[in-house]
Write a protein that binds this DNA or RNA. Structure first.
Lengths: 218, 218
DNA sequence: CTTGCAATGTAATCGGCATTACACCAAAAT
DNA sequence: ATTTTGGTGTAATGCCGATTACATTGCAAG
């Protein structure tokens, strides 16, 4: 047995796909695993191939170099987080309900171990690979910020909330309020894993404070 | 010139000190620079010696290995940064004013490059050195959280804000609101350095939303 | 002065990868 | 069936950095 047949790890996404596409997907899955598990520097290319099947040569042919495949992993994950939001934001839902939904979508994704670990990785790499961090911000935070700013603008036009000259900023603030309480502890303590219930409660509280302040409703 | 006389980088702390003590301090200073600048993995032992003077052999004799000197540096660093974090308790100051002061003290410290870099390192290595991250949380965030919770309780007792069954949580939320907008970008983009003015404006906005919500004052 | 101990500079070890080279194969296209 | 295109295993090639060895040298006590 000198060659491996086309087996490899988890090749079974959407069925119809070219040979190359399958290989690519297997590589990405394995790479994500390895990077998240071991960190960027400690991760080793051969290990990725060991898990994905295929060969080093192909891996390099498809992604260029180590940084390249890491970036690809990053992009894939960002799409995953962002896509769900796109849908929610299309609608003209009343603020309170809308913010709640957006908040839960967003926070739900963020507290997944995968997201947390990826974020940890990126923060750690920000100095050595500024481009990477830049890309991350572009695809993640900035995109979400813009989307929610648009939603707030829409609600303001509908007269539900006061107009403002800077909905980008308010959108960011809302996102931070939703994100930080769940994320900040979990980032430093792996054993912390916010539950569904934690997420819901936090979003609830956040929406309330964001709209009406400490003084309570209306 | 085969040997270096005892010069090296910044050897001039408290004067009276044994030869070994001086060397140790020079190593620690250089190591701090290098680790904060390049991150743990990327940092290289020879670079530390290059900056500190002395020799590799001595470095290893004093700290054992790379991890050893890294931990030594971080523990010292953490004490510095978290000690500076002390927030003076504004007992009996009116909420709006009190929150503003606490917020500004806190945020002012956080956005200093020193703090940002330390935080970056710790987050990035939380997986590899969990104890370190724990200690950091204890000394930093948790302490401030407790302090502000006490302040909010005080204000509630004075009737300025509604009572709540969980001021710890609300305190955390306030801190996150103050912190995240300033910190999250700067963490990922070295070139970002919030100004005094940014800090003030952010605290201002935060206090307003925290107390009265989007709907504006009162 | 000289003797012992610690520090020094230099130059190995030693191992671990990223990255490339190469000589064979397999499926798709013709 | 044959050509084309891309995939596959294997084994270099290089480089880099942690750690150690060693012979030399300076300082301080007797």
């Amino acid at each position: 047995m000198k060659q491996n047949g086309p087996e490899g790890a988890a090749i079974k996404g959407t069925d119809s796909a070219s040979r190359a596409e399958l290989r690519r997907r297997a590589f990405l899955d394995a790479a994500r695993e390895v990077f998240l598990e071991q960190g960027y520097e400690a991760a080793n290319m051969s290990e990725i191939v060991r898990r994905a099947g295929g060969s080093l040569a192909t891996l390099y042919a498809q992604f260029g170099d180590k940084e390249g495949i890491f970036l690809a992993v990053l992009e894939a994950r960002m799409k995953d987080v962002t896509n769900a939001l796109e849908v929610e934001l299309q609608t003209h839902t009343p603020v309170e309900e809308g913010l709640r939904r957006i908040g839960e979508q967003f926070a739900g994704k963020l507290v997944q171990p995968q997201s947390l670990e990826l974020y940890r990785l990126i923060v750690g790499l920000a100095k050595k690979f500024p481009d990477l961090a830049q890309t991350f911000m572009q695809l993640g935070p900035n995109k979400v910020r813009a989307a929610i700013a648009a939603y707030l603008q829409d609600r303001a036009d509908a007269g539900e909330i006061p107009q403002s000259d800077d909905f980008e900023q308010l959108g960011s603030l809302f996102l931070d309020m939703v994100r930080s309480p769940l994320q900040s502890r979990a980032l430093l303590d792996q054993t912390v894993r916010p539950s569904e219930e934690d997420v819901r409660a936090n979003v609830e509280r956040t929406v309330s404070v964001f709209l009406y302040g400490l003084s309570g409703k209306r």
